[in-house]
């Protein structure tokens, strides 16, 4: 564990908690893409199956359980409890156009052709594009609530910090995982446009459609 990875995990946890609290407190999921949240729940489910097979550390296990729990709680709030506030007209990104290519690629490019490894690879590739429905929704509505922009900022920063973590691990441990690194670079690049707006526009972020 290094400072970049810990900071990244805490930023990721902050993003997940911010979103869950925002929906719960305002009792509304307006401006939130339910499709992105479904993709994140799928990412955590396919990536953390090793909860059943291997124990790495208490920290690792606790964080995985929290991530999975919050992801499904968020999906539940969006599609069940606060369904009436769900912005279905703008949340129209075809996620099958993400899942199918990512699924195919995870069969073609992976470290090991075993079920757990292919599912892990699928989750890594999927996570790199999972935010697209959310960015698409914001570009369609033309604006995002301030709290949503903070959520997106933390979510974007988490994988950017992981990039530094991988540089650190390569330099000090000689460890590197090309699949995670390439997907992490793609994921962070997708946020760049948003980062620019978040920093320059301060409060109201309007991504030009």
């Amino acid at each position: 564990m290094n400072i970049f990875r810990l900071a990244g995990d805490l930023s990721h946890l902050a993003a997940i908690i911010i979103l869950l609290l925002k929906i719960w407190k305002t009792r509304s999921c307006a401006g939130i893409s339910g499709k992105s949240q479904i993709l994140f729940a799928l990412v955590f489910t396919t990536r953390y199956l090793d909860l059943l097979t291997s124990f790495i550390s208490l920290y690792n296990t606790c964080m995985k359980i929290i991530y999975i729990g919050c992801a499904y709680a968020t999906v539940h709030l969006i599609y069940m409890k606060f369904k009436a506030t769900y912005d279905g007209n703008h949340d129209t990104f075809r996620i099958e156009f993400l899942i199918v290519p990512v699924g195919g690629l995870s069969f073609l490019v992976n470290h090991d052709f075993s079920p757990l490894e292919i599912l892990w690879t699928f989750s890594i590739y999927l996570e790199s594009v999972a935010i697209l429905p959310q960015l698409f929704l914001i570009s369609k509505t033309g604006e995002a609530e301030t709290i949503t922009t903070h959520y997106l900022f933390c979510l974007g920063v988490y994988r950017a910090l992981y990039l530094f973590n991988w540089i650190w691990r390569f330099y000090f441990e000689g460890f590197f995982d090309m699949i995670a690194i390439v997907a992490g670079v793609v994921q962070t690049i997708l946020y760049c446009d948003f980062f620019y707006l978040y920093v320059t526009k301060g409060e109201k972020v309007a991504i030009p459609s």
Partner: peptide
């Protein structure tokens, strides 16, 4: 490839 298969990151 075994070190890559033990994924210790979240």
């Amino acid at each position: 490839a075994d070190e890559a298969s033990t994924h210790d990151e979240l």
